[in-house]
Structure formats: C-alpha cells, structure tokens
Design a binder for these strands. Sequence first.
DNA 1: TATTGTTATACTCTATAACTATA
DNA 2: TATAGTTATAGAGTATAACAATA
Lengths: 153, 153
Amino acid sequence: MTTATPSPPLADPTSRDERAALASRIRLSCMRISRRVRFESSSTIAPHQFSVLCRLSDQPHTPRELADIERVSAPTMTRTVAGLVEAGWVSRADDPDDGRQVILSLTQGGERLVHETRQAREGWVAQRMEGLTDDEIEVLRHAAVLLERIANE
Amino acid sequence: MTTATPSPPLADPTSRDERAALASRIRLSCMRISRRVRFESSSTIAPHQFSVLCRLSDQPHTPRELADIERVSAPTMTRTVAGLVEAGWVSRADDPDDGRQVILSLTQGGERLVHETRQAREGWVAQRMEGLTDDEIEVLRHAAVLLERIANE
DNA sequence: TATTGTTATACTCTATAACTATA
DNA sequence: TATAGTTATAGAGTATAACAATA
C-alpha cells in the first residue's frame, strides 16, 4: 500500500519484521502474566467456576445464557451451576414470567469471593509494578489504552 | 516510605489508587488477550499438549522432568506423552546411561506444529497492531520491556 | 532402598442424546 | 412445535495407590 510513497521516511519507521517481533513479545508477556496471575493468586475455585461467578457479578443470568456466554453445553452448565449453588456462591430463583427458566444470582458469599479474588489478582500485578518509576508508569498508562484496544477489537 | 518527603511534587505523582487502577487494567487486558489468542488462533491441539510440545522445542526432556515443569502427576504425563507420540509429534528414545529413563524429543511434525501455532498466535496480535501509528508502536515497544519484567519477576 | 515409569482405579469436566415441563 | 432445563451415558484429563525395572 505505501510502496509508492515518494519520500522515504528518515526516522526509523517500524518495519514489518519489527512489528512482528514486537507482537511476539507482547503476546508472550500477556500469556505469561495471565498464567501466573491465575496460578499464583491462590483462590481455591476452579477457573470455569470463577468465570461464571464473574458473569453473574455483572448481572443475573439464566443457565442457558451462561452456557452460551461460556461456550459450553447446557448439561455442563447445569452441573457447574449445581456446584456453585451447593457451595453457597449462587442462588436460584424461578422466573415469574416464564416457568421454564431459572434466574441465577450471586449470594453475598459469591460476591465476596469475586471481590477478594479480583483484589488478589490485581495485587499480584500491583506488587510487581511497585518498583517502576513514575516515567515507567506513564508508559504503562499509555500502553494500557492500546492493550485494551487489542484485547477488545 | 515517602511520607516525609518535604516538597510535595507538582506534576501528578502516580498515587497508590491510580497505580492499583492501572494494575487492574493491565491485568484485564493481558488475560483477555491471552484468552482470545488461545481460543482464536485455531490449532486443534489441546492446551496441555501444546505446552509440553513447547517445552520439548527448547530441548529434550524425560517424562519426569515434564511432569515437574507442567505441575502434573507422573501418570498424567505418561498419558499426555502417549497421546503426543501416537499423534506423531513426539518420539521416544532410551537413555543410554540410565535404563529407567526415556528421552522425549519433538519429531519434524511436532516442530512444524509448534512453529505454525506460534506464528498463528503472533499473527493474531500483529493483525490488531496494524492500525497503530508509529508513535503508538513506540509506546508498546517501551511497554514490552516493562511487561516482560512483570511477567518474569 | 530410592527413583523412573507404568498400570489400576476413581473423580471431575466435558459432550451428545433422550426426557420433562412450559411457551 | 420449539425452548429451558435436567438426567443418562460416555470420553478425556486429572489424581493417588500399587507395581516393575533399574540405580
């Protein structure tokens, strides 16, 4: 596309290879941070269970909705939800308008668990950011916008 | 620690809360990017299998070493390795010095799979970086160093 | 006796198929 | 007839316990 650009840029324009190398570094860092946060921010709860609790912390959902969101089958979600209810983190309520449906919400204990787990995870990153200078924090502040764009695009 | 600092800084010094909020954004972005890369960079292979292939792409290992590295039990690694051997991605060789041990290496097909999967994953990120300006790339270049520090600390 | 690797067995998460109740 | 949810059943990944071969 830019092949026909008349004046060649003077300051190093990031080449295709350089961008690819940078993409590789960004990906590796993100995956490693993600992995370490999951493994090292304790929380005894299983990943698929916690993921459901996070969805319910936004708003109540039916099992069908959760199954679609989490990309699992309905029977799998039935089982997952049963475990969360038994553990006291999720409560069930009949839908007043549709007798087939069930409405799932977080209990107080469930909300507390989500809050505490999120705090622990943020703490893991925050702790490793403590050694950074204000300039470096500024770099991360700008980078956060870009990472969010990449994550959500 | 810095409570006794005599002259209050004029330009915004990142407060504790601001750093915590930034840590939260960084964590969320990294976990979402990691998740999407795993889900959307196809590769039919299961995560635990691919993880083992990556270890073997660095150097050969015994099942015992792989079990320790991957934090799974020896029988689980026996099963995982059996699947990888059956799929033609890993080959077994007797250790000449210790009759109890087995040395596992990648086959050519295994190396190809690792290479292709890594390329697909990098491509996912690279594609979403295409819209960035050179200035934004520069921000990410600086941020990559910091993310790597956080990931490996 | 300790270590490597495997086999035996059981539990959990996952899926598809079949069933019940409601719309 | 279609949809929400559950139950029945099976396959894959995981673990612990028990075993064989080697150090």
